[in-house]
Design a protein around this nucleic acid. Sequence first.
DNA 1: GAGCACTGC
Length: 616
Amino acid sequence: MGGGWTGDSVHATEAVSCADSMKLMLSGIQTAASRVAEEMGVKLSEEVGYTIRFEDITNSELTRIKFLTDGVLLREMMDDPLLSKYSVIMVDEAHERSLSTDILLGLLKKIQRRRPELRLIISSATIEAKSMASFFDTSRRRLGRDGEENGPRKNPAILSVEGRGFNVQIFYVEEPVSDYIRAAVSTVNAIHDEEPMGDILVFLTGQDDIDAAIQLLTEDPHSRKQGLIVLPLYSGLPRGDQDLVFSPTPRGKRKVVISTNIAETSLTLEGVVYVVDSGFSKQRFYNPITDIENLVVAPISKASARQRAGRAGRVRPGKCYRLYTEEYFINEMSADGISEMQRSNLVPCVIQLKALGIDNILGFDWPASPSPEALIRALEVLYSLGILDDDAKLTSPAGFQVAEIPLDPLVSKMILASNDYGCSEEAITIAAVLSIQSIWFSDRGAQKELDEAKLRFAAAEGDHVTFLNVYKGFIQSGKSSNWCHKNHINYHSMRKVDEIRQQLRRIAQRIGIALKSCEGDMQVVRKAVTAGFFANACRLESFSHNGLYKTVRGSQEVYIHPSSVLFRVNPKWVIFHSIVSTDRQYMRNVIAIDPSWLTDVAPQFYQHQQLNPRPH
DNA sequence: GAGCACTGC
């Protein structure tokens, strides 16, 4: 390519993956399991099997090799804390450092103290191998909790996998860019003008960036090019639009996929030869003081940058254009970033550890320790929910029941409370809808139609009740995709809601929750929501003309999100499910409540005076 | 009247 770039060369790091687009819809676990079964000449589900959330393809008598997700293995540990069924455990992709992987690594280290014969294999990208080895390094003898020195044990094998990618040549900009969207667009155009055929993958941060870049590439007459097929890719994109990126590129054309981080690890695009890396992604950050999680655009790590570059070397030698300087990459970019554990609300982690009998959460040996403030905040929240007792142990039965439900503990608490209010069927439906991205079919071009469709289901009580109306309509339609289409509802999302509902109903019955419908009494449904989410209560400011609310607990200024059915309705008291922060903090999924319920469900959390600052 | 990185149980 022309001037403005400096060059370097690295080897792509990429594990083997499936090739044809049919298989791309399968998870890595499914493809890995089938491949191993095939090579061993055995039937999948017998000697070789796999387990993912909704699918258990194993046979307890026959299966010798089992592929599973870290989340499933953590669930198994609740019944079998020492994982006594397994003699060898291999943790793949350990460098990705997800919440579950970090918890798992900490627990495996603990298990090995009790089970020295257990063999561990940790597979990680090279860049992380050293820190992984030092985490498990048993030659650094440590004093156990009881003051007894631990004996020598075997260290796990750390496999650092460089994969089979082709060589990828790296280019950097010579001067920092001020606008990475424009820089990405002009880089795409330069590649198209000067480089041989091959698809281009561009990493930006979110839907807004992606839309802006696509507009520049397709509508601006100065930068529009012939022969480019420009496609967006992000998780919220309707399924049919997502599938377009997997269709083969017609001869003589060049495909340009403008993507979020979804293409960094979750989805694999074949045929990509050029990668354009903005150097940024959206990352979650948690503030334990305000108890609010924010999604912010932040610089990526070197590990991420290498992973992105590797996406260019899957079919032949490729090129990666980094929209930052080499000096920045070498001297300023962090090696592996801040782990997810250190950026998250820890309520879900803490309950998982408690359920596994880890009493000393603050002393747990994490691969990367979260802040004490975040841990203490999580313990406080769980205590106020009645899930932990004065000794920070799981309460019985509530704490153990909540731990059994595979959802955020606040949602699980709502389900538990719904048992007392006689509305568990409704609570389970709400929980299922809250655990997926959106039930609405998102199409920015048809915003008005979507708003009108929403009005058909809108409930005065709020979004949670609106979800119940939608689900009811879906069932009455015979789960029709046509009905979904007519009502701007995402059919795939509704199928998923149904699947999650079935799982939750099974679990509810197992832990002693009676499946019961309140037959339209929405007051009890709102009370059940309050019992789980009382900490998210907000009051409309008395003199507010623009819908300003303050959180009861932290006096944070928040507004109802325009996508909520309660937008502009502004009831005096509301409870939100989550916050999105832009220039304002917006509450998403909001329900109206009566403030007296707060003191009913959480007397220890809410003092009566707080709710009525000027009584009488 | 505005805007939702990504997994996963």
